[in-house]
Amino acid sequence: MSTTPVSTADFELPRVLIARAIEQALAEDLGVRGDLTTDATVPRGTMSTATFGARRAGVISGLAVAEAAFHALDPSVVFEPLVRDGARVAAGSVAARVAGSAHALLTGERVALNFLSHMSGIATLTRRYVDLVAGTRARIVDTRKTTPGLRAFEKYAVRCGGGQNHRSGLYDAILIKDNHIVAAGGIAPALAAARAHAGHMVKIEIEVTSLDELADALKHPVDAVLLDNMEPPMLREAVALVDGRAITEASGGVSLDTVRAIAESGVDLISIGALTHSAPILDLGLDFTPQAG
Rank of each mutant, 00 (worst) to 15 (best):
S265H: 03
S271K: 04
H220W: 14
A112T: 06
R137V: 15
H200A: 07
C160S: 10
R15Y: 13
T4G: 03
G135M: 05
V6E: 04
T49V: 08
I262G: 02
I204W: 02
H166F: 12
G185E: 11
V133T: 01
D283H: 06
V267M: 11
A90T: 08
L82K: 14
T126M: 03
K177P: 02
T4E: 02
D216C: 06
A250S: 12
D85R: 04
A19W: 02
G53A: 15
P221E: 13
S251G: 04
H71T: 14
F11G: 03
A25M: 11
D283M: 08
T107I: 00
T258N: 01
I281V: 15
R144F: 05
P189S: 05
V242E: 02
E109F: 07
A57W: 04
A68N: 07
I181H: 00
L241K: 07
F11I: 06
G86M: 11
L284N: 08
G62Q: 06
I281S: 14
A40P: 03
A112H: 04
A96I: 07
D131V: 13
H71D: 01
L125D: 12
G34A: 12
I181F: 02
T143N: 12
A27R: 15
I22F: 10
V89Q: 08
A263V: 03
A196N: 08
D212T: 15
E67G: 09
T276P: 00
D10I: 06
G253K: 08
A224T: 06
V94T: 15
L227H: 10
N165F: 05
I176P: 05
L256T: 01
I247K: 00
E23F: 04
E264Q: 15
A292D: 12
A69E: 07
V65Q: 12
G163R: 12
P75W: 07
V202T: 15
R151D: 13
T8D: 13
K155G: 10
V259W: 04
R236K: 15
K203N: 02
V222N: 00
G121H: 03
L150I: 01
S210L: 12
V89R: 09
N165D: 09
N165I: 09
P14E: 11
V6Y: 10
A215Y: 00
G53W: 06
Y156H: 14
R44G: 13
H197W: 01
G169T: 05
L256R: 03
H118V: 00
T37R: 10
N179Q: 10
L106R: 14
A72L: 04
A99D: 03
V78L: 14
L218E: 02
V133H: 02
G169D: 13
P148G: 09
I60H: 07
E264M: 13
G273T: 08
R139E: 13
I204S: 00
A27Y: 02
P148T: 04
A112Q: 04
E205N: 11
A183V: 03
A215F: 00
I60M: 11
L113T: 08
